[in-house]
Design a protein around this nucleic acid. Structure first.
Lengths: 225, 225
DNA sequence: ACAAAAGTGTTAAGAATACACCCATGT
DNA sequence: ACATGGGTGTATTCTTAACACTTTTGT
């Protein structure tokens, strides 16, 4: 099977799935059904077997344990590979982590899902393994990513108001932005354009809807914030 | 050994070691002594066995095949994990890659080194596997890294002139910078301070030597370039 | 009429860019 | 004296940051 005398460590994948819930950034967690850390909350993750890419394993595991289909995510990115020998009490496991961004995700429950639920990043329960560290790392990466790319699109509906856009930035960055400066700056980047539709949703002036010019990830000409 | 019916892929590590040779950025390659790709140039890399962290494996392999001690590197960073199932013709291998930065590295040859040599990044030979892609990725990461951190320190001697510093930036970024603007900007970041020593090295005015205030990696207050 | 969010401009400070000459040394 | 790289300043443009009121709608 393997070359002479070589035995590899276990390979696992873990996913950090973010979405916006109202004005806060949330992350998908599952509740472990087995030891170790039985009953504790954790990132959806599992084994990566030979013949399967890490992304395939991530897709399979995310569906099975978290009830989320990878194709419903707007952006997926490999984050980091965690491999402290001691991180899994069962033995040496190397975990390749991915970050996924989506919107209005609703875990579809089935016989293998493990109580998937979105938690605000500011109110996380106690977490299994080193998953708290992984989420922190993912959040920092996301904060950086939205300042030099248009990655925010993956957290928003196709058509959105400037207020929604600003709220998304504020949710990820965890601080407030000045409305006039935000709009001026963002519009000057020429990433979005107005549709001529209006969003009438309350007892106030309707808001214009915008959409991104290009569907994919782009690097900004001037970084943001 | 493993949980029920689970067999992991092979785990390998590969290192992209950069240093400056005069005014160009160079990368360490070895010449493969076995199939596949026998005789071709490649990044120093090898198996990562159970019980060994990826960083430990990287250290061991870099010494064995490349003749370079990890402790001689000024900065080491995990880059990305490459795992296209087809990337290694022998079968499914997942490679965790690291980037290392050093200065005046001289491979120490021994019975296991495989003809290690530094090649300018602009003049690479044909490379085994997907190592050309990996080097390109590492180079881009390094370019980004020196614009928002003081990572350049790892490519320079402890004391250096502003011209050496500028040359290092130019070598990594592959484009020229304006001398006056470079100096004004870099000094305003307050990362370096003057020693009162001079570098007398030729038939011209001696240059002041500077050093970094802090020994470790720092994020810049304003990003560079 | 009131509540609620949408939308809008100006000024001042700071940062980036473009650009050319004198200085100190060795030969 | 000349060749070589070291060292320096200013003017212009662009970017950021601070800041408050009017508009449009539903109730």
């Amino acid at each position: 099977m393997y070359p002479d005398g070589y035995t590899p460590p276990i390979l696992t994948v873990d996913s950090v799935i973010f979405q916006l819930d109202g004005t806060v950034l949330s992350v998908l967690l599952i509740q472990r059904s087995k030891e170790p850390f039985k009953g504790a909350w954790a990132l959806p993750g599992g084994y990566n077997a030979i013949g399967e890419t890490t992304k395939e394993a991530m897709t399979r595991v995310l569906k099975a344990k978290g009830g989320i289909a990878t194709k419903d995510l707007g952006l997926i990115e490999q984050l980091y590979t965690f491999d402290t020998v001691a991180r899994d009490p069962r033995g040496h496991a190397v975990s390749v982590t991915y970050m996924g961004l989506g919107k209005n995700l609703e875990p579809k429950l089935n016989s293998t899902t493990q109580n998937p639920r979105f938690f605000p990043v500011t109110e996380l329960p106690d977490l299994a393994y080193d998953h708290g560290e992984i989420i922190k790392y993912a959040h920092e990466r996301l904060q950086a990513k939205i300042t030099y790319t248009n990655a925010i699109f993956a957290l928003l509906p196709k058509k959105f108001t400037l207020s929604q856009l600003q709220t998304a930035y504020e949710a990820v960055l965890c601080h407030e932005l000045d409305k006039r400066n935000f709009r001026k700056k963002f519009l000057s980047l020429e990433l979005i354009e107005t549709t001529n539709e209006l969003n009438k949703d309350g007892a106030h002036r309707p808001a214009r809807l915008y959409c991104f010019r290009n569907p994919g990830l782009e690097t900004l000409v001037r970084s943001f914030d």
